[in-house]
Amino acid sequence: MKEDYSSMRGEMLGDGNRGRYARQILLFGEEGQKKLKSTRVLIAGAGGLGSAIAFYMAAAGFGRIRIVDCDVVELSNLNRQILHAQADLGRAKALSAYDSLAGINPEIEVEAVVERISEENVDDLLQGCDMIMDGMDSFPSRYLLNRAALKRAIPLFHGAISGYQGQATTIIPGKTACLSCLFPRAPPPATAPAIGSTCGVIGSIEVTEAIKYVTGKGRLLKNRLMLWDGLEGCLEEVSYEPSPYCRECRGLGRDA
């Protein structure tokens, strides 16, 4: 079942928009804001990471946000999944996300899709999308996104969390290693402990990367894995490179 909800108000960057985005236009100009507006993103997951990602992308004015999640809101989600409120218990997360995002920025187009991302529907879900935001909670689903990103040659902004710890990196097909180069094996499945603030840190890094990518500013986390350890209060990075043995991207050309 697929439910699309769209709001198409505020097509042009008018004076009202200039007001809304005034503080970030100081960073990347009206030009950058227009680029955000014309960018369509797929946010994979409306859980802890997806919540932080979606809020900040909607507020920043990414013009078209498609958010996909097949689950319903449960009480144990509410410590971290800030898209959803007490009143949303039992509702589809994607629809609850739609309401939150339309509320924070009615000038963007939001589509909510209540589906599990799979081999069968990933092509449809990515139709027209310029980038993929990783808000998934398992490696098999991330490998699916990675494969789709490689196939469509669109960036994948990776993030993951567990407890006080998190990681993020930016995959640009044709320019960087892919997610499977970095993580050739999925870790054993387990239920990760989670606090909202860690999702906030990592989701925010992913969105910062997406903004940098669209506006052409700064140095992306290309071939660099950022590691956050909240208990230590420590942010580190390690570099990585395309693997000649990668089962996903071996043989695909790279130019930087």
């Binding site: 859980g47 398992s138 490696f139 993951a160 567990s162 998190g166 990760a192 894995l225």
Partner: peptide
Amino acid sequence: LKIVRFVHGG
């Protein structure tokens, strides 16, 4: 060597 226990939650 830096051994990193990577995470997978979301």
